[in-house]
Amino acid sequence: MLNDVNTAKVNELRNRYPTAQALVLPVLWIVQEQEGYISEDSMKYVAALLGLPFGHILGVVTFYTMLHSKPTGKHHIEICTNVSCMLRGSGKILEHLEKKLALKPGEVSADMRWSLEEAECLGSCGTAPMIAIGDEYYENLTIAKIDALIDTIAKSTDD
C-alpha cells in the first residue's frame, strides 16, 4: 500500500527505535499523508507491516485526535475555541465560518473540499483568535481576514 518513497522512509525509521511498535505513530502519519486518512484496510496493512495486532493499531488511531479514520475535507479547518482564543473572539469567527461554509464542527462538505473541527489549544494564544488549515496556522484573525482567506483558497484550488 505504501509507495516506494514512503516504504524507504519507514525502513529508515526502523534505525531510530529499538522496537517495531515504536514505529506506530510515525508510520500512521506517513499513511495519513499518503492516503488522506487511515482506513480499516490501512490499519490492517500497518498491523502486518509492524507485526502487531489490528486491535492495537485501531486503539492508537482512535486515541489520537489528529489521526482520522474517516476522510476529511481537502481543506481541513481546525478552530481553537479554548480560553485564550475565546477571550479574543473565537466564538464570532466560528459562527462566521459555520455560515460561510455551511458546515458545523465535525462535518465535511458534500464536495469533500472543506471540513471544520473545533480544536483544543493549538499554542497560538498570543496571536488569538486563530485557525489551522492543514499544517498552516492563520493568526490574529478578523471576520474580514477569514473571508479573504477562505475566498483565496476557494479560488486557487486547482480541482
Binding site: N82, V83, S84, E120, C121, G123, S124, C125, G126
Partner: peptide
C-alpha cells in the same frame, strides 16, 4: 508536547 491551554513558549 506544549498543550497546556495558554502556553505557547516552546514554539
Amino acid at each position: 508536547d506544549e498543550s497546556e491551554p495558554g502556553t505557547f513558549k516552546d514554539r
